[in-house]
């Protein structure tokens, strides 16, 4: 079976007078419905790897396959289209557009995709917000929300176009334990119930141990893979 996402010999070097190797020699593959944590100390290249997997960045050598398709030869617009249709991002900071309401923020990716009518998009956005318990907040703007609520809105937006993979970069980094827990439960549910793949960067061992697989990075390369859920 073709893996959903596969990295083959991925290396990323930041060019400059002193080139910096962010990640190197990355090999692994991801199946649908997996919940994966990328862990490692600061500066180990966790986020860089996530950006590469999320097609935000392009590897210096090696390639990344999404549904069996090699992505390193695609142009920027094609990558943008893949991100729009297949991927959803959640960052440490919520990154919501401050001038738009919660509902509008969630609708942004749908409107960019333009596959549905306005009323259908509205209905779908409301549905997602409802699943995440944000219905009362739909009309508010981001600055009227708590940190946990904002992060859930960011997840709702990541889910807008029913992505195959949700990529999260320290999604709980700015949240208290309770809200961090909530976010992780949502991810877990998405992976188990919707068969959506979740890849999250975290350095919180309490959270990462609830994932199915942990990819541990040290100095930009994979130091080990654990399957705590299977233990």
């Amino acid at each position: 079976m073709t893996p959903l996402l596969e990295a083959r010999g991925v290396m990323r070097v930041l060019p400059g007078p002193v080139p910096v190797t962010l990640v190197r020699d990355i090999h692994f593959s991801v199946q649908p419905g997996e919940f994966i944590a990328i862990t490692g100390p600061s500066g180990s290249g966790k986020s860089s790897l996530l950006y590469l997997l999320g097609l935000l960045d392009v590897p210096t050598s090696g390639s990344i396959y999404l549904e069996g398709r090699e992505t390193s030869k695609l142009g920027r617009n094609e990558l943008a289209e893949l991100r729009l249709k297949k991927l959803g991002f959640v960052f440490q900071f919520h990154f919501l557009l401050p001038e738009f309401s919660v509902l509008e923020n969630v609708m942004l990716p749908m409107r960019k995709l333009g596959a549905r009518s306005d009323s259908l998009m509205r209905a779908r956005a409301a549905e997602i917000l409802d699943e995440l318990g944000l219905t009362p907040e739909a009309r508010k703007t981001p600055d009227q929300l708590s940190g946990g609520q904002r992060q859930r809105v960011a997840i709702a937006r990541a889910l807008a176009n029913d992505p195959l993979i949700i990529l999260a970069d320290e999604p709980t980094g700015n949240l208290d334990t309770k809200n961090g827990r909530i976010v992780f439960d949502i991810f877990k549910r998405l992976a188990e119930q919707n068969r959506q793949t979740v890849i999250t960067v975290t350095h919180d061992p309490h959270l990462s141990e609830h994932t199915q697989r942990q990819i541990h990075l040290v100095d930009g390369s994979i130091a080990g893979t654990e399957h705590p859920a299977l233990v």
Binding site: G54, L56, R76, N77, A80, E81, L82, R83, L84, K85, L87, F89, F91, F95, L96, L97, L108, P109, K112, L113, R157
Partner: peptide, 8 residues
């Protein structure tokens, strides 16, 4: 953020 969402 718009670009990460998939805006060209």
């Amino acid at each position: 953020i718009l670009k990460s969402i998939g805006f060209e």
